[in-house]
Each structure stands twice: as C-alpha cells, then as structure tokens.
C-alpha cells in the first residue's frame, strides 16, 4: 500500500530517521523504500495521520455522546451524593487519560532520545499539549467535585496532588521544547524530563490505593468496581475510551503540524505546500 500525497509521489529518503549508519555513509545496500513504506518516515506518517484523524474524531464523538447519555440519563442518583457525583463522568476519565498520555509521551520521548528516532520525539511533543489539557480538566473537575464534600476548593489529597505533578510535568515538557531552538537538543532535554517524571507516576498510582479513603463521604470508590453500579461503570468506560480517541485525533492533527514545521526545508513539504490550494 502506497499512500500518496496529492501531487507528489512518496519516495522516502534512505536512513531518514536514523543517524548515518556505516552502510548509508558508504551508500551501499539500503532496502528500497517503496517496497516497504515505513510509517516511521515523517512523510508517510504525515499522510497516514491525515487519513486516521477523521476516524478517531468520529469515534470520539460517538463514544463521548454515548457515555454522557448513560451518565446523565441512565445512571441512577447516588445514595450519598445525589446528582453531584455526575461530575465523575468527566473527572475520572480525564484523570485516566492524562496519566495514560503521560506514559505514552514518556515512552515515545525516551525511545526518541535513546534510538535517535526523530518521529518518536515529534509524537511526544504532539501529545504533550493534549495531556496538559486533560490534566487541567481533571484538576478543575476534581476541585468542583470536592468542594461540597470538603467545604474548600483544594485539599492536599494524594490523587489531586499527584495529578498536579502530572500537569506541571506536561507544562515543563512544553516549556523546555519552546525554550530550546535546536529541535534535537530540545528533544533530548525534554525527553530526560519526561523520563525523570515517570518516577513520579508510581506515587500517583499507589496513592490511589493507599489513600482512597480520603475522599471523605464518597461512596463511589474507584478501586473496587463492585462498588459501582453497571451503568456508572459503562458510562465512565465509554467516556474514557472516547476521550482517548479524541486524544488520538488531536495528537495526530498536531503531529502533522509538527512534521510540517520540522521538515520545512525538505523537498516534499515545499511541493506539498505549493500544490495545496
């Protein structure tokens, strides 16, 4: 399968992502690029991301719509919290998704640093803003959820504090990338930050189990799903997968922008930008 950008035949240059190897330096024996179009090549990946984005967008819309319908019209009123707990259909999935994005971002970024893989680093920088968005949403909704229970907007509760750490890690990652002009050095610095931050994540993970009783009168505990009625769990799961699909769509759309920015001196970007109306 060859994916063609309009007006341009894909022809991935050899050794596109790797540092020069011996064989490529001596210009011998590289596999023909057309025979196996690798999506690790920015140009192929650009086309593939453009194809996948609408599918993920529709999946996100359908799943979030279904999840919200279940959350607001099917799930029963909570015995202790009344209708107020319906914030959880946004709060809990945002928290899941932000942590998952962080793990993905750290993995991509680490792979990019260790293997000098440019596209992996680009993917990491495309994931970061959406991750920061969901970390912010998790904190905002957590504060709104906790206010009537705690009586204050912010409590140094373990889960919220860890989520705050995740938000700061995302913001630090973005700030480092913006502050360093040379993309390779920026990738390396922010990759190190992301990998260091991974050690903060077990704190988040285990704090959920260790201090889950600290949510006060909350009857809805996240650890044993037996406490959740089936519609509540279904709604949260649908919202979680829906937000994940949204993340995929947004990150792929941003990946296309990052690829255009970083490959702007290459021939295919010049041709692509010229051919487009």
């Amino acid at each position: 399968m060859v994916i063609a950008i309009r007006g341009y035949q894909p022809q991935c240059p050899k050794a596109h992502n790797k540092m020069p190897t011996l064989s490529s330096t001596l210009n011998i024996c590289d596999p023909p690029p057309v025979a196996r179009p690798g999506f690790a090549c920015p140009q192929h990946c650009y086309a593939l991301a453009g194809r996948l984005t609408p599918w993920f967008s529709w999946a996100a819309a359908v799943l979030c719509g279904f999840g919200l319908y279940v959350g607001f019209f099917v799930a029963p009123t909570d015995a202790h919290q009344g209708e107020h707990y319906r914030i959880a259909f946004l709060h809990t999935p945002s928290m899941w998704v932000s942590v998952l994005i962080y793990v993905l971002m750290a993995a991509a970024s680490g792979y990019g640093v260790v293997r000098r893989h440019r596209l992996a680093s680009m993917l990491a920088s495309a994931l970061a803003p959406t991750g920061a968005l969901f970390a912010f949403l998790a904190l905002w909704t957590g504060s709104l959820w906790g206010k009537p229970i705690w009586g204050v907007w912010w409590v140094w509760e373990a889960r919220l504090a860890s989520e705050l750490l995740v938000l700061f890690l995302f913001l630090g990652f973005i700030a480092l990338q913006e502050a360093i002009d040379d993309p390779r050095r920026a990738d390396r610095a922010s990759g190190v930050l992301a990998l260091v931050g991974v050690f903060g994540l077990p704190l988040l993970y285990f704090s959920v189990y260790r201090w889950s009783a600290m949510y006060g009168t909350v009857s809805l505990s996240l650890t044993p799903p037996a406490n959740m009625t089936p519609p509540v769990f279904t709604g949260m799961l649908a919202m979680g997968i829906g937000l994940l699909a949204y993340t995929a769509a947004a990150a792929l759309a941003r990946l296309r922008i990052v690829i255009l920015m970083r490959e702007r001196s290459s021939e295919w970007v010049a041709t692509y930008a010229k051919v487009r109306p």
């Binding site: 009344g82 209708e83 107020h84 914030i87 946004l90 968005l133 912010f136 909704t141 709104l144």
Partner: peptide
C-alpha cells in the same frame, strides 16, 4: 438543576467543552 448542584456539575462540563 441537578438536585441543587447544577452550578458545580455544569461549570465542570462547560469548561471541558470550552477547553476542547
């Protein structure tokens, strides 16, 4: 009205929609 908690619930969802 959300059982009296409408302000909390809807401001959470409104901010999410605006941000996205």
């Amino acid at each position: 009205a959300m059982g009296g908690d409408g302000l909390y619930v809807w401001s959470a969802y409104l901010v999410a929609i605006v941000v996205i």
